[in-house]
Design a protein around this nucleic acid. Sequence first.
DNA 1: ATATTTTTGTAGGTTGTGTTATATAATTCG
DNA 2: CGAATTATATAACACAACCTACAAAAATAT
Lengths: 202, 202
Amino acid sequence: MAPAGRPRTFDRDEALKKAMLVFWDKGFEGTTMSDIIDAIGMKAPSVYAAFGNKDALFDEVVQLYAGIFYEGPLKALNSADDIGDAIEHCLKAHIEMFTGQEGACSCLLLTAANNCSPEHQQHVVSLRNLRAGYKGALLARFKRAVADGQLTDDANPESLTEFYATCIQGMAMCSKDGASKKSLLDSCEYALGVLKPFLKKA
Amino acid sequence: MAPAGRPRTFDRDEALKKAMLVFWDKGFEGTTMSDIIDAIGMKAPSVYAAFGNKDALFDEVVQLYAGIFYEGPLKALNSADDIGDAIEHCLKAHIEMFTGQEGACSCLLLTAANNCSPEHQQHVVSLRNLRAGYKGALLARFKRAVADGQLTDDANPESLTEFYATCIQGMAMCSKDGASKKSLLDSCEYALGVLKPFLKKA
DNA sequence: ATATTTTTGTAGGTTGTGTTATATAATTCG
DNA sequence: CGAATTATATAACACAACCTACAAAAATAT
């Protein structure tokens, strides 16, 4: 049943998505609450009533983004049994995320809170933790490939993880600088070539 | 001869370096003038008298940083005649810059002004232009290598440029996340391996 | 020595951003 | 219907950040 009281005239989930796109594009500190409020199309008190404050809203946005992230690159990483396929699908899923949105590009986890004032360091830390968690997932995937006997003995999961994290983050920054999807895919091919010498023949 | 008037009690060049380290670490918007003023160890009016305002100071900092940049990675890129050596020296010079400073790390051109409020977009643009200029230098270097007959016919200067720009920016971001010099050098080796198939035997 | 010039420190002005008080509108419950 | 509850809009508060008047201090020039 509908709750008592005047009903909201906007959709909360839609509003959150709009807020995500703004933060994605302009980062935490680069975004003002006025930007958010304008994007949602409501007035300040309605937005504050729905989301609390800027910090809480950003936290929700990060959660939403992380969910999309898990459904994309992370799922791609862990779906394929072959490590070569897994990395390829994963990188390409990243490129989709970097270039797929209208307005926003690159990666919110990487660019939305790099340099914050001391009172907002929490966001810098939480995004850094998410990135570290993702690196952990990459590492686990390479270790699984070792356990599965898919990689040669001289393959080093730690340094492969670091290399591919480098490529992913680098592509994100290039995308922020306007790189086309095609040029990102070119870089992706080079990056995938690095893994080939370590793949055992099937 | 000394100019008339009370002499400055701090060294302007030293103060500029200190300001650079703060901006390098915390970015343009993440840095307050109080941070700068504290780092320099003077009071606000002295700093403003010496540097104008925050925008002008940041511009000077960027100039200073660009100078260091030209002396490091860019010089390394253009000093060696062999393209393999050039890229290797260049990447390693980047790693030195990413990890060499106390306090600051990563790359000021990449991280100091990603997400600015509209009234400071000038800095986002100027750093983006510097990055684009650097990509141009990379491209020119690869084209020179083609002209010098150092690369195979299937080597594509544009996509090689994009790939190495990706690696450099990726390493910068990893360094900001605390990557060790050793792990950056590991990634660097993988990245250099990408060029090898395109190198003609001497 | 006095005037002139420039720096320094205190203290405060101005603006922009995050947030909220208050009154009004729209809905449900009894 | 009237009471209760929640959303909306206007308008304004609070605080922090950038910047600057003003007066005192420290040097040079005549």
